[in-house]
Structure formats: structure tokens, C-alpha cells
């Protein structure tokens, strides 16, 4: 039994991003941590409201934080891990927002009269921060059984791990945390200049052509830099970069496909966890199986 840490999976990990959830939980287990799902978690809302006069986007997140506050006391840990970039971004922003804006917190506390008030001591963390600051990259290195030697990875951060500034897990213009991780996993890291550019996000619902264009650009540039795969942490980026290659290919005949993976899948593989129960390659539109064959 490893040490228990609260985990907020978010809706998408429960379905289309099962590959992200399982590879996260299993890789953490190898490192000696039990990611325990936050009981009764609710949707984070995916995007944070920007209108100053509205609290509707904050409620659900503060409610989640209150749940974490209660459960955290039970297991004696105040860290709440998220691995989906959107979940991380929302929970963290809600936390910062109500901490900065006590009136808003008061309004919310009054509104949710059933629950306890939020005390503000939940440490919302992205899994990458957890790896770097709490687990330690040395420990990760220790657990590498099959170094991904020869695999060229383009790290892709997208927006929500780095912006806005108050939630950034690393330097927003030149982040290195994924690079550091992949190097430790033995992979070769591609200097990917578009690593912090937007994938088109929610436009994938009603303007998929635009997202197809974004995917075309992001994947082609990674290809041009010699990458074998793009690795990300966000299920929406993953979906856009993976599935929307279909549109990219329709529009640009010279476009070459490239598999997209979650960084946790690469961790799992390097740790020797190659079962499809962890990796779920069936969730990928472009299968990474061929590229990763050597290590499976």
C-alpha cells in the first residue's frame, strides 16, 4: 500500500480518456502512491468564467474543494491531484480566486449552506508538479525499467498548464518540466517551439475545420522537428491533435499522421507497465503501437 493522495479524475478520464486515468494511477502506484478518487466529485466546468460579475463558474469548483477539505482530513493530506489540464486549471483558479476575493467566497459559502465553509488549505496540484516537487525526479528515474532510448518526443503543454500566470506550473514561454521528465524516461526530447500554443480547444465541437487547421500546424511542425510522438496531459488537446488529424489529412494531402500520447502513458511504458489495461491504445485514433513497439 502506498501513501494515499487525493485524486480528481474529472469526467473525461472516466470515458474517452481512460488511457490517461489508468496510466496516471498505475504510474503513481509504481512510485509508491495510491491516488484515491475524491468521493463525490462533480464536474469542474471545463472552462473558467471570466466575467467579473458572475460566480456560477466558481461554485462547482469550490464545492469540490470543500469535499477535498473533508476527505483530506480523513486521509491526513491536503493535496488534490489533477492530471487533466482543464480540471487542474479550474480547481486551481477557483482556489486562487476565492482566496483573493473573500467576498466572493462569503457569497459562495452562504449559497452552499449545507456544506462546511471552504478554509482555503487545499493544495491543488497537477500530477507533473507532484512528480517534480513531491515525488522527486530522482525517484522517477529509479523506477525506469525500460528507458525509452531512441524515442523522439515532442512535449506539448497546451494552454491551461501555463496560463494564466497565477496557475502556471512552469515558465509560460519556455517550460521544461515535461522535457525533464522525458529525459529521465530515457527519451530524446524534441525542441518543440509550439509546445505552449493552443490546439483550438472547444471549437472542436462547432468549428472542427479550424481545429483541423491547428492540428495540421502543430503536428506538421513537430514532424518537421523529427518527433515520433507528441505527448500531452490534456484530454482535449489529445482529442484535437489525435482525432482531428482526419480533417488535417482531408485538407492537406501531404500531411503525415503522428500518434499522440499522454505523458503518463510514456511513464507507464518506461516503468514496464505495458498492459493494454493501462495503456488502452484502442482509445487512440492514430495508434501509437507501431512507434512504441520497441518498448512494449
Amino acid at each position: 500500500m502506498g501513501k494515499k493522495v487525493m485524486f480528481y479524475p474529472g469526467c473525461t478520464l472516466k470515458g474517452v480518456a481512460k488511457n490517461l486515468e489508468d496510466s496516471t494511477v498505475e504510474s503513481a502506484r509504481v512510485l509508491g502512491y495510491d491516488l484515491v478518487e475524491l468521493p463525490g466529485w462533480t464536474c469542474c466546468g471545463a472552462v473558467y468564467g471570466l466575467a467579473q460579475d458572475s460566480v456560477k463558474f466558481t461554485i462547482a469548483n469550490v464545492r469540490n474543494l470543500i469535499k477535498a477539505q473533508n476527505f483530506g482530513k480523513e486521509i491526513g493530506d491536503n493535496r488534490l491531484l489533477a492530471v487533466c489540464s482543464m480540471c487542474y486549471n479550474n480547481l486551481k483558479r477557483a482556489h486562487i480566486d476565492v482566496m483573493k476575493n473573500r467576498d466572493k467566497l462569503k457569497t459562495l459559502d452562504l449559497f452552499m449552506d449545507e456544506e462546511a465553509n471552504y478554509e482555503g488549505n487545499i493544495n491543488v496540484m497537477h500530477y507533473l508538479q507532484f512528480l517534480k516537487n513531491d515525488v522527486g525526479m530522482d525517484k522517477v528515474a529509479e523506477m525506469v525499467k525500460k528507458p525509452l532510448k531512441g524515442l523522439k518526443v515532442a512535449p506539448y503543454y497546451g494552454c491551461l498548464l501555463l496560463r494564466p500566470d497565477e496557475v502556471a506550473i512552469d515558465d509560460r514561454e519556455d517550460p521544461h518540466i515535461l522535457e525533464e521528465l522525458f529525459e529521465i524516461l530515457g527519451a530524446e526530447v524534441v525542441d518543440y517551439p509550439l509546445k505552449n500554443e493552443c490546439c483550438g480547444s472547444y471549437h472542436t465541437v462547432d468549428k472542427k475545420e479550424i481545429v483541423g487547421e491547428r492540428t495540421y500546424k502543430l503536428v506538421s511542425v513537430a514532424k518537421g522537428m523529427g518527433a515520433d510522438v507528441i505527448a500531452t496531459s490534456c484530454p482535449l488537446c489529445f482529442f484535437n491533435l489525435d482525432k482531428r488529424q482526419e480533417i488535417a489529412k482531408q485538407k492537406h494531402s501531404e500531411f503525415e499522421h503522428m500518434p499522440i500520447v499522454y505523458f503518463t502513458q510514456l511513464m507507464a511504458i518506461a516503468f514496464g507497465l505495458t498492459s493494454q489495461d493501462v495503456l488502452h491504445f484502442d482509445k487512440h485514433y492514430i495508434s501509437p503501437e507501431e512507434v512504441l513497439q520497441k518498448w512494449l
Partner: peptide
């Protein structure tokens, strides 16, 4: 096939 976060955010 759309991830829930895509629809929610949209």
C-alpha cells in the same frame, strides 16, 4: 466520441 470537456466548455 467528443470528450465531455469539449462539450461542456463549448
Amino acid at each position: 466520441e467528443l470528450p465531455p470537456i469539449a462539450m461542456v466548455s463549448n
